[in-house]
Write a protein that binds this DNA or RNA. Structure first.
Lengths: 345, 345
DNA sequence: CTGAAAGCGCTAACAT
DNA sequence: ATGTTAGCGCTTTCAG
């Protein structure tokens, strides 16, 4: 037989739907204990479960958020998701996971879906090509908090958390320079991704502070994967004067570089220093353990969700002329994939 | 101003709601092209988006499924999720990701949530302690397809996909025996997990076929993580006669073992052979590349979702006396973490 | 302290 | 070819 409704409960308990609704939401404490417990009993007997859908329709609230990530198989996101989850669950929110795979097409498709499903808000940890779908979301009254994204001036309910790449990357550059390196390469993320550009600029900028001209550092576009690290290294080794130090925009890429180096007979860090970005759990497990720039992934998730909750709570439009913003720091973890440059012989 | 409703569209287009609804669902092709395009225009002008919630309420269908995984940070699941997604998206289903962290509490909490949200079906890739929440789901008319779970006899709409651990694990055992090993250890997953037990039995069984008594192989319970691999190895090395070959129920564990071995001055595979399970992408990147048992993760995801779709489609109860079941195979990938046993000196 | 009734936004007969 | 109407299951004034 079909799922019982509130009506069924009301009828068999000989009360009105309102009463049932009241015991469900413990609103109006004023109720005969007898009534309450009787209704409760009936609910249990019938195995009644309120319909979230109906509830959402009347309440105009779904207790659900959307979470956009670029690539769920990148361990970076796993922790962010965990962070989001930790605070979402505590507030009884469920999560629609949307995995864009760096594809704007998929991004809009998900945005559409989230709008249709009427999520209460969305978290965007991926900013591909266009801001289009973020705009689409907010213009449909859906609060958004985005990671590493500077919102256009005309905002509705949006918040942002910004990672301070610059300091961590500067530490990395300094470290490499201190080690005596002079020939550098950078393997970036997909170039249309905002953060790829920011990381590159940060690295080139830090190097220039040491007198190394951007024109002299080789930059290759990768795509945040083992494969792209391998491919990039092959390309770099073909150069007349290959770099002695590589900064990859992503740990996966860095690990790919290390692996490829080994298969080509190069030893990291003796022959080549490499620094990653992200400090994913594996970074410490590979051989040699990866020197990398850490981001507080879990915290990022928590902050984002918390910020969203704030946005949701202040639904009584406070003057949102200023968009909430929070910054998280990055930090270099020196392990064993970097070493002094080999003496030229 | 608030989100426009179908009513608004109808009014400003001077037609009835039904008409609008019709153009939305291109049902009834019989409609004056003029009407259709006019309505479409109004829809565009108003920026109207149908409410998925209202739609779900009347249709009793949410176009949403739940996906239960044990640990989203385990790369094993990333691919399964991708597989599920690939076919879910094509059929316009969205996914509620539920990350149980091997915690039955969280499991039931999610089950409740999924029931309330009225998902159309759920995929369970995690079977912790009790089958309780699977039962809860199906008894609420929600179709379930589960991974590596033998359903109780009295089923509603459930499907299962079973991984044939046995063959892959037997290959692994044979491989180790061929290499001359005689002292074995197994580091399992959480013991209350069904699959942990199955893997252990498979390993012990395969070994016994070679005359090695189960009593002689050390079994340690782990929890599918680097840390548990490290801890287990420490324990094993404290033994009077430490094993020379270890089969870990999970790649993360195996990688943890290798890492710990290195920090304790042991060389893998010279001093110790280790085999993992899962063949996660990292397995091939660590040093030495991990010999491991592969599962068709992506395919598992696809099969599960496909099966669910079938269940959903045959909502006109076919005699579901037999529950759909499909088996996937496992296979040993020999890489470099296994080698002939060292000669005793 | 509890009930009646309206309404949330949409679809699906059933008219016309 | 299009309009009318009756729900879908719940919450929430407003009465009593």
């Amino acid at each position: 037989m079909a799922r019982p409704t509130i009506e069924d409960v009301a009828r068999t308990a000989q009360v009105s739907k309102s009463t049932v609704s009241r015991v469900l939401n413990d609103s109006s404490e004023y109720m005969r204990e007898q009534t309450r417990s009787h209704v409760l009993a009936v609910i249990r007997d019938l195995g009644y479960r309120p319909s979230g859908v109906a509830r959402s329709l009347t309440l105009k609230r779904t207790q659900t958020i959307g979470l956009l990530v670029s690539d769920i198989s990148n361990p970076f996101y796993a922790d962010v998701i965990l962070g989001v989850e930790s605070i979402a669950l505590a507030h009884n929110f469920d999560i629609f996971l949307c995995n864009t795979m760096y594809d704007p097409q998929r991004g809009s498709r998900f945005a559409d879906s989230l709008i249709d499903k009427q999520v209460d808000g969305v978290l965007v940890t991926t900013t591909s090509l266009s801001d289009q779908f973020v705009v689409e979301l907010v213009s449909n009254q859906i609060p958004v908090v985005a990671l590493d994204w500077t919102p256009p001036p005309l905002d509705e309910k949006v918040g942002v958390v910004i990672s301070n790449f610059e300091t961590g990357i500067a530490e990395a550059a300094n470290h490499l320079v201190d080690l005596g390196h002079q020939r550098f390469a950078h393997i970036g993320g997909p170039p249309h991704i905002r953060t790829s550009r920011r990381k590159r600029e940060a690295f080139l900028g830090a190097l220039r502070a040491h007198g190394i001209e951007p024109a002299n550092v080789v930059v290759i576009d990768g795509n945040m994967s083992f494969a792209s690290g391998k491919a990039a290294l092959i390309e770099l080794l073909a150069l007349a004067k290959p770099p002695t130090a590589i900064f990859a925009a992503d740990d996966l890429t860095a690990i790919g570089v290390i692996g490829e180096a080994r298969t080509r007979g190069l030893q990291v860090p003796r022959d080549l220093s490499v620094i990653g970005f992200g400090d994913v759990p594996f970074a410490a497990q590979v051989m040699p353990p990866l020197t990398t720039i850490a981001l507080p992934r879990h915290e990022i998730g928590r902050i984002m969700m918390t910020m969203l909750l704030d946005l949701l709570h202040n639904s009584v439009n406070l003057p949102n002329t200023i968009t909430p913003m929070q910054q998280v720091e990055t930090q270099l973890f020196i392990r064993e994939s970097t070493a002094p440059v080999k003496k030229a012989h």
